[in-house]
Design a binder for these strands. Structure first.
Lengths: 195, 195
DNA sequence: GTCTATAGGCAGATAGAC
DNA sequence: GTCTATCTGCCTATAGAC
């Protein structure tokens, strides 16, 4: 039966990641300190170092978990939705959901401070973008087949455009605190692929 | 005749802004310290405080000058180029030039760390976006008149989309160190307004 | 305008007790 | 696993001499 030593709910490492994730998506990596995370969790910074020896390791873990979760969401979209157009709509909704929580895409905000990131984090950010673009390119190709999309140019180029547009729409919408701003851009983007 | 007390070339304040601008567009505002700027200029941080009493004031001055320069460039585009389509191409080239210098748009990178900025800087960032969107919306409206553009939806919405897309394209292209990435997205964006 | 000197705070990180 | 205590370094900022 369930053990009683559970003073904390789930794994402490996961709770650290939860808090850190929200803070990083709001303020950026370099504007989040061990003290910020520790105080919110009610432990000391020394304890934090037990779970994540350094900030670089915490950052890596953050991206890894975020990317894995995102990949799961993409798999679910692939499984649940019939045509490419619907998949792209769902993809844009993924971003909109992040923005509604007043957050930026984690890798988008990390891209802004890319120059100051430790190397392992850099590769992880680029890897996230690569994964997204690969998935988008696949969807776009299927869109030509199932006739739910129409576009000119290479699927790879369009995939990059979609990623860039949605990341940029989040970036600009957030200072306005205006989700509609994002939605309008997403709608126009989708429309340009439906003609 | 030219005075001889010129140990420095131009105004020191301007040289400070030049250095700070490059550093901020590369690393972000919070990742640039007075020490970074001072050491590059060959003076002490104390001297820096003489020209800009605090980092908030430096940041404001940075955005003000950047926005003014950008506004000048837009005026020049208006004056030099005949039709709306050509103006949009020139607008995108403005961004491409910034990216070629391995920099991010200053207000784009500041948008990423918006939550941590002092209030005067926040307003200045939003003001920059507003100015750009106003100019873009005007160009778009003229594009319908001079037949060099064609689009559906409000000019204001499309203007936001253009700004978002270009900012996002810079954001994503920079980690790849790949200007072509940006250009491909810009080209697709322009194409979607020409149909 | 620029300097030296210094303050005061916060950053990430470690040693060692419990 | 979490704590206290502590270290070192960097940060913004100021006082006051030149």
């Amino acid at each position: 039966m369930a053990v009683s030593r559970a003073q904390q709910g789930p794994n402490t490492s996961q709770r650290i990641l939860d808090i850190a994730e929200r803070l990083v998506q709001t303020r950026g990596f370099s504007n989040v300190s061990y003290a910020d995370i520790a105080s919110e969790l009610g432990i000391t910074t020394a304890s934090l170092h037990y779970h994540f020896p350094g900030k670089a390791e915490l950052g890596q873990a953050l991206i890894t978990r975020y990317a894995a979760r995102f990949a799961d969401a993409l798999k679910k979209i692939d499984h649940d939705l019939p045509n490419a157009h619907a998949k792209l709509e769902a993809y844009a909704r993924l971003y909109a959901d992040v923005l509604r929580g007043k957050r930026m895409c984690m890798c988008g905000i990390l891209a802004a401070e890319y120059e100051t990131l430790p190397e392992p984090m850099r590769s992880a950010v680029v890897g996230f973008f690569d994964d997204n673009q690969r998935w988008l390119a696949d969807v776009l190709k299927h869109g030509l087949t199932d006739k739910s999309l129409s576009f000119i140019g290479s699927a790879d180029d369009i995939a990059r455009t979609i990623l860039s547009t949605l990341e940029g729409a989040m970036l600009v919408a957030r200072p306005y605190g205006d989700t509609d701003r994002f939605n309008a851009t997403a709608r126009h983007l989708l429309a340009s692929l439906t003609s």
